[in-house]
Simulated assay, not measured.
Amino acid sequence: MSDLLERLRRRGWRLTAQRRVVAEVLEGDHVHLTADEVHTRAVARLPEISRATVYNTLRELVSQGELLEVSTDGRAKRYDPNAHRPHHHLLCTRCGSIRDVRPTGDPLSDLPQSQTFGFTVSEVEVTYRGICPNCPA
C-alpha cells in the first residue's frame, strides 16, 4: 500500500484540498495512473479541480521524489506512488496494466563488472512483459 499522503504530511508539504485529493487518488497497491486518469478521479471527489492543478501537482511530486514516472512502450506516462520501496514492474503488453513486483535477488549485482563499461551504476529499472489473465491469449 502506498503511504504517499503520510509521507507528504511528514514532509510538511502544504496540503491544499486539491493536493490532498491528488494524493488520495494515488493511494493503494499497484497504482499506475496516467495524468488524465488522476484528473478524472480527482474531479469525481473535487469537481472544481483543474487539469493544470493536477499536472502541476504530479510534476512537483515527481521532482520531490514522492512519485515515480513510469513510461512503457511509448504509452502515456504513469505515476507510481511506490517511490520509496524498491520494486520492478510487470506490464501487460495488450491492455497496458502494470503491477508492482518484488523479485528476490539484486539485479544490480547480477550485472558483471565486465559489463559496466566503467559506469558507476546507481539504479536499475526492470520491466517484465507478458499477457495478464484478463486479456485473451
Rank of each mutant, 00 (worst) to 15 (best):
M1S: 11
S2L: 05
D3W: 07
L4Y: 00
E6Q: 11
R7P: 12
R9N: 07
R10S: 10
R10N: 09
R11K: 10
R14M: 02
R14H: 09
R14N: 12
R14A: 10
T16C: 02
T16E: 12
Q18Y: 01
V21C: 01
V21W: 00
V22G: 00
V22M: 01
V25T: 09
L26A: 09
V31D: 05
H32V: 04
L33I: 12
T34P: 11
A35P: 06
V38D: 07
H39D: 06
T40A: 12
T40R: 15
A42G: 12
R45L: 15
L46R: 05
L46T: 10
I49V: 15
I49Y: 00
I49E: 01
S50Y: 00
R51N: 00
R51M: 04
T53I: 05
V54H: 00
V54N: 00
Y55T: 14
T57V: 05
L58I: 12
R59H: 12
L61C: 09
L61W: 09
S63Q: 13
S63N: 11
Q64G: 06
G65H: 10
G65Y: 11
L68N: 15
E69Q: 14
V70A: 07
S71W: 03
D73I: 03
D73F: 06
G74N: 08
G74D: 06
R75D: 06
A76P: 12
A76G: 04
K77L: 14
Y79F: 15
Y79Q: 03
P81N: 08
N82T: 14
N82D: 12
A83W: 06
H84Q: 09
H84P: 01
R85T: 15
R85F: 04
P86L: 02
H87C: 13
H89A: 02
L90D: 14
L90W: 12
L91W: 13
L91Q: 04
L91M: 06
C92V: 08
C92R: 00
T93G: 08
R94P: 01
R94E: 08
C95S: 09
C95N: 11
G96L: 07
G96R: 02
G96P: 05
I98S: 00
R99M: 10
D100V: 14
D100E: 11
R102G: 08
R102P: 02
G105L: 02
L108C: 03
P112R: 05
Q113V: 15
Q113K: 10
T120H: 10
V121L: 14
V121D: 02
E123G: 15
E123T: 15
T127Q: 09
T127M: 04
Y128T: 10
Y128L: 13
Y128A: 07
R129W: 02
G130I: 10
G130S: 07
I131Y: 03
P133W: 03
C135L: 07
C135G: 08
